[in-house]
């Protein structure tokens, strides 16, 4: 019933209050003094509250980068934890300014849902996890016919799962929960044989299980899951700001700019660096965007570059220990490619 009421309220908000969605989002954000950012309710490495109650993670840090670019303050951001099911309504209705919640970029979301994706902050793929102690013989996803599978409602995961089992002529028994936490506890309690979500998510979930060592992630990756921030249709300026905040992060890594060497790099004569950091004479790349010319400086000063964010939240410096893989820079064989800032 609560959900019903919530959904109703959501559509009422769409109906009556959609006016602010049309106006310049940037002006609204400046007026209220913070960025309202939709994040996951708790996915380690992407967005989860730490021991002190501060939100941390790759998706969270992207929101902080936005806040830094606009306000020069990474804390000028408020987080709305959203379930997979509520996330799009929240963005459409103007409840959040940007959705940075490990959301897969697909064509239908880009068109019928009225969203615009600003880039891919993490290239992921869907995988499976099983309890190796209870099911020691399972080494491949192709052995999963007849299994009971736990999955979260309203995700691309749910659709890929159906496609994969159909394509391989296998049966399965889906148990679908609305909340991430519910899926986790149901899997942990043995309600399902298999847990499926994006592979990065599986590693994160495993850390929270009662005995993480018992569970293995199967080698198959069954889908492409480009995860990135999304905004509403209809405000190109705001889309540009979100997009170029992401590219500034990647460009900063490409040019080797980080928190420690920022002062030194700002003195550099390298024209590429001068354009990125806004130190160019008469440059107006930042102001054309609606921000200040030193927006990239603000971003790097407060949250670092893309590589720093990755390593801190999901990479070597985090409990997840995920390697850069396809998320490495294009110069190192990955897919992260910063569009030229000029």
């Amino acid at each position: 019933m609560k959900k019903l009421v919530k959904a109703l309220l959501g559509s009422a908000v769409v109906a009556v209050m959609a006016a602010p969605a049309s106006a310049a989002t940037l002006d609204d954000i400046k007026a209220k003094g913070h960025v309202q950012c939709g994040v996951n309710t708790g996915l380690i490495g992407f967005s989860a509250p730490d021991d002190d109650g501060n939100w941390t993670g790759l998706d969270v840090d992207f929101c902080r980068a936005l806040a830094a670019a606009i306000f020069d303050d990474p804390d000028a951001v408020q987080f709305s934890p959203l379930s997979a099911k509520d996330r799009f309504t929240a963005l459409q209705s103007g409840e959040v300014d940007v959705l940075s919640r490990n959301t897969t970029w697909t064509i239908s979301r880009d068109t019928a849902l009225g969203l615009n994706f600003a880039g891919v902050t993490y290239y992921d793929g869907q995988g499976f996890m099983v309890n190796a102690k209870n099911l020691p013989d399972i080494k491949s996803a192709l052995q999963l016919s007849g299994a009971t599978v736990c999955v979260q409602a309203g995700t691309t995961t749910e659709l890929n799962l159906a496609d994969y089992f159909k394509a391989n002529n296998m049966e399965y028994n889906p148990v679908v929960f609305e909340k991430f936490e519910e899926v986790n506890s149901a899997y942990d309690a043995g309600r399902c044989d298999v847990y499926t979500t994006d592979q990065s998510g599986l590693y994160a979930v495993r850390l929270n299980l009662a005995s993480p060592g018992d569970h293995i992630v199967l080698p198959e990756i069954i889908s492409k899951e480009p995860l990135g921030p999304a905004v509403r249709h209809g405000d190109d300026q705001w889309l540009d700001i979100v997009k170029w905040t992401y590219y500034a992060l990647v460009n900063a890594e490409e040019l080797g700019v980080n928190k420690d060497n920022l002062e030194e790099k700002m003195q550099s004569d390298n024209p590429e660096l001068r354009r990125l950091l806004g130190t160019e004479e008469g440059g107006k790349l930042g102001t054309d965007l609606g921000l200040t010319n030193d927006f990239a400086v603000r971003i790097v000063k407060h949250v670092g570059n893309y590589g720093d964010i990755f390593e801190r939240n999901v990479g070597a410096e985090s409990p997840l220990k995920i390697s850069r893989g396809i998320n490495a820079l294009w110069t190192k064989g990955g897919l992260q490619y910063g569009m030229p800032i000029r």
């Binding site: 959900k3 769409v14 019928a112 409602a153 309203g154 995700t155 679908v176």
Partner: peptide, 27 residues
Amino acid sequence: AVAIGYPDLVATGGTTLNQTGQAIEVV
């Protein structure tokens, strides 16, 4: 039912809402 994953009208409707984004119609 939606809290424990029983596929009732609200649950299947919720998934439909999410896949199609047509909140008003589903509600």
